Amino acid sequence: MLNISMPEAPPVAIDELEHRILIEEGRLFAKIWMADAPEAGQLAPILLFHDSLGCVELWRSFPKHLAATTRRRVIAYDRLGFGRSDPYPGRLGSDFIAWEAQHVVPQLCEQLGITDFVACGHSVGGGMAVETAAHLPHRCRALMTIAAQAFVEDRTLEGIRIAQRSFEDPANLAKLANYHGGKAEWAVSAWIDTWLAPEFSHWNLDVALAAIRCPVLAIHGEVDEYGTNEHPKRIAAGRGTAHILPNTGHVPHRERERLLIKVIHQFLNRIDTLSQ
């Protein structure tokens, strides 16, 4: 476990820029937070991958505060079918996690002029960050996962079934529509139907994890309702550190934002020190 005792960084102004990016499959919405500090243009930016029902807006204040603390650019984007990006063209395939890394991320990086980066993903976005680090090993300088799943676990499926029942209430779908508009119903179906499909039951990140060549930090909440601590252990095994956040559930960037950023900051500082 990392020692998170560290001095507070002085305040810094943050510039926020929005982008519309055209890739082969449609238009993506992306947002960049950049600290007004010399190192912000020199350090590899952090590329954020959102969860199964997430989007840029649902990261809340996390990207801004992460950029201010780490002095790195922080880049988040809405996947196709989510937030302010175009609808997904059809039904989500069972290989959607690896597909994102192989087909979307290279186009995103080209459009935004990103060379090296730090991959950081929440929940299923953590799986996409893993696949990205494996697919682009010469560009990914570090990998960070937050509440990620590394395999299909009974606890994950039970959490999804509970969520499925909650969406029988139209009010819950309406809340989601505040972020995804008319794509909300598709987003819910894509998450639930994909994970509960029999053909998805054998999915895991083992092949991608074996290809990781960068430092790894796997963060997980002690009381995560969508997965046990076996997930961060598998992600970090032999390649990095698993850090368990006490009294934290599945959404650390909302539940324990300050602590999460401290853990990330120390990890990245250690990498920077070793690379000097």
Rank of each mutant, 00 (worst) to 15 (best):
A147R: 00
T228Y: 02
L48C: 06
C140Q: 04
E225R: 12
I244P: 10
W186V: 01
Q102Y: 15
L80S: 08
P7N: 06
E158L: 05
S5A: 12
G90P: 08
S166G: 14
N3E: 11
H220F: 00
H50F: 02
H19E: 11
I261A: 03
R91F: 05
L92T: 11
F82G: 08
R139C: 10
I114R: 07
S201F: 00
W33E: 03
Y179E: 04
T69C: 10
R239K: 14
D95E: 12
A133N: 06
L268G: 01
E199N: 13
L205I: 04
I271M: 11
K262F: 01
N178R: 15
F267E: 14
E255N: 05
G54W: 01
A187I: 00
Y226W: 09
L92V: 13
L209I: 08
C120W: 03
H220P: 09
D272K: 11
Q111M: 13
L80C: 09
V105A: 08
N229T: 12
A208D: 10
S189H: 15
I146W: 02
A242W: 02
E185N: 13
L66R: 02
V118M: 06
A133K: 00
D193T: 05
G240R: 03
K175I: 05
P170N: 03
L47Q: 03
L112V: 08
S201C: 11
S5M: 11
V124Q: 14
T70E: 06
H19K: 08
H231L: 07
F151Y: 12
S94N: 14
T248A: 05
L2C: 09
G125V: 04
A142M: 08
E153S: 14
D116N: 09
P246M: 09
Q107R: 12
G182Y: 00
E257S: 07
L143I: 04
I235R: 06
D193L: 04
G221M: 05
F49T: 07
A210H: 09
F200E: 14
R72L: 04
R165N: 12
A119G: 07
W186D: 11
A37Y: 14
H250Q: 13
F62W: 05
V130W: 01
Y77K: 04
G125R: 06
D206F: 04
L92K: 13
W33Y: 05
T248W: 00
P252W: 00
R71A: 00
R141E: 15
K175H: 15
L2M: 15
K262R: 15
N204V: 05
H250A: 03
A148F: 01
A218S: 09
E168P: 01
L48Q: 04
I114P: 04
M6R: 15
A236C: 12
I244W: 00
A177V: 02
T132C: 10
H50Y: 02
E185L: 10
L66A: 01
V130T: 08
S189G: 12
H122R: 03
G127Q: 01
A184N: 09
G26T: 05
